[in-house]
Design a protein around this nucleic acid. Structure first.
Lengths: 334, 334
DNA sequence: CAGGTTAGGGTTAGCGCTAACCTGAGACCC
DNA sequence: GGGTCTCAGGTTAGCGCTAACCCTAACCTG
């Protein structure tokens, strides 16, 4: 049917239907006043010519791309995958497409991506768990009319914010305190490397010390939020500090990597060594023993962020902050 | 600096720099002949005005969007997440963005997505594990100049193909035979619901029977490729057929769901019941006992598919088929 | 030193759409 | 019966770029 030639344009349809291009445009967009007869006729011609509007031409004149950009550190991390799914569902529902940018946990890549991306590419931007320091991130966000930032705080005029009710990294403090209260005395910490987000080590130490816990800097390691990184860091940590009786993982992947390292080191979980994570990914529930972690509605974060973004795109400039809950789920590793 | 007014256009830069718009365009695109002096001067003005080319305008005249669309059934399935990561890396490397469409394992949604998507939205399309029947899928692909199809066969003129060296679903047959050879006699099968892709049940049965295995239709269930679906199907299957001593899972998530169901049913793995999966996701390696499965280089599938797509976008019309290997990794569940 | 070549630009004409305004015919009103 | 209101559509201009062609001065070249 379609002759794989030039695509039909508005003008082709208009000529064929014996009307002006505006009339066709109005039919396509359901705007303006068109008689039922004309509408039907135009629709029929559109179908016959297999006409589809050109996104580029539309975008040029309306200054809208009907795309939203979503920037995440790692699609393969189930935490982000769920958020993306939520975002995609809501975006799609509203006729928007999702432009996905994966930064592979690299600051350079994230900066490059955010630099490329701008308002002729997408109508709005969702940045999830940015790894960039403020002095780089904020100017990049400033270019946009509509931004939502997840898991991070930014000045109110720049973006809506979706974040945990806890301060960032505070989960680790809660986990450490919980471990201390349940009798652990030498608590290691695999701290995520997340500039501008993660609680400073000093705060972690101060807060743990505040409840009477022993704190020693050699017990802490910083690593990327991946299974491999957690495994590597824990292996090293346990080799050098076999005295540890608990490890706080920055997230589930890291905690799970630590579990593997602990098992390989011949440790018994939880008798010998307790481990915690954060995010509650499926895998954490299914390993043996299941990982103690913080639950959080990842899918919902994605949907809420996208809804906030669409509001902003629609012109709402009020500051919105959506705080989500995270709850400690105690499982087999503690 | 940027006055958050109208964005600077080529014309603004041209006026400010005292040259024609073409000259600016040439500087921006590094085409044509421009003297070093002019180039430097124009660059300086571009920087001063913070000029960025409009994607929409470019796309309109060049008929290129510099986007590729990637359609997957489920971003949260680690198998697809890895593929997406590979695709994103290669696309980004070549200056392309990735438009992600998640179909949530729904045929209707996939058809709708593919219907919306066309060449004014992206320059090429990668469809991963399409769930659509041929009579719907093929016409939708026909609209594109550049398509790559993953995990599926299509007529050579329509798309390049990236697929397993095995026929689709043949892995399940191999798994069943392996189970039979290692002494299992009552083998259940959680077959994935994947129209046009999955081996028909009759073939599975015939192939298993061919090596002497017993085949009974009540031992088989069809389910979605998710953990929940696998769990549900296995729970039901095991309740009705406690005589089973092995279950072939259509993929890892399903196999893992089956493991949970089996454990809840008081079965011992592998003594009492063997289970297999396919895809080799991280979780399969980390559960106890680790799941026997088929390995496959998911990331590489993503990179290869994208490279093939970029070739096609560049005008290569030859048929390419990339066959990847899958290898059985025997682990604790068998 | 007439006739070509090059380097370094400029000019023109759209790409396919929609915003904003205009028009013309009938209905309606007092 | 002249004004005006509504309906149904048309006209015009331009979004911001680039492809394709054109132009001119300087530079060879035999």
């Amino acid at each position: 049917m379609v002759k794989r030639q030039r695509r039909a344009t508005l003008e082709d349809v208009a000529r064929e239907a014996g009307v002006s291009t505006m009339t066709v445009s109005r039919v396509v967009n359901n705007t303006g006043r068109i008689s039922e007869d004309t509408r039907r006729h135009v629709r029929e011609v559109i179908a016959r010519l297999d006409y589809r509007p050109s996104r580029a031409a539309r975008a040029l004149v309306t200054r809208q791309t009907l795309m939203i950009a979503v920037v995440v550190p790692d699609v393969t991390n189930p935490y982000f995958a769920e958020i993306i799914k939520g975002a995609e569902d809501v975006a799609w529902e509203h006729g928007y497409g999702v432009l996905l940018a994966n930064t592979n946990e690299s600051q350079a890549r994230e900066a490059a991506v955010l630099n490329q991306l701008e308002e002729t590419t997408a109508d709005g931007l969702i940045v999830v768990s940015s790894r960039l320091p403020e002095n780089i991130l904020l100017p990049l966000l400033e270019r946009w009319r509509a931004v939502v930032v997840v898991n991070r705080q930014v000045p109110p005029h720049l973006a809506a914010v979706v974040r945990s009710r806890f301060e960032y990294g505070h989960r680790s403090i809660l986990a450490a305190r919980y471990l201390f209260e349940s009798g652990r005395r030498r608590i290691g910490y695999l701290r995520l490397k997340r500039p501008g987000v993660e609680t400073p080590l000093e705060v972690f130490m101060a807060e743990l010390a505040a409840v009477g816990g022993e704190v020693r800097e050699e017990w802490y390691r910083t690593c990327l939020p991946s299974w491999e990184a957690g495994y590597g860091a824990a292996k090293d940590l346990l080799a050098q500090h076999p005295e540890l009786d608990a490890i706080v993982g920055g997230n589930d992947l890291v905690g799970l990597g630590a579990m593997r390292a602990a098992i390989e080191a011949g440790r018994h979980i939880p008798a010998d060594l307790a481990i915690t994570g954060s995010d509650d990914i499926l895998m954490s529930r299914e390993v043996t023993p299941p990982l103690t972690t913080f639950t959080v509605s990842k899918y919902e974060i994605g949907t809420v962020a996208t809804r906030l973004l669409l509001q902003r795109i629609a012109g709402d400039t009020e500051y919105h902050e959506y705080l989500f809950d995270e709850e400690l789920v105690v499982r087999g590793t503690t």
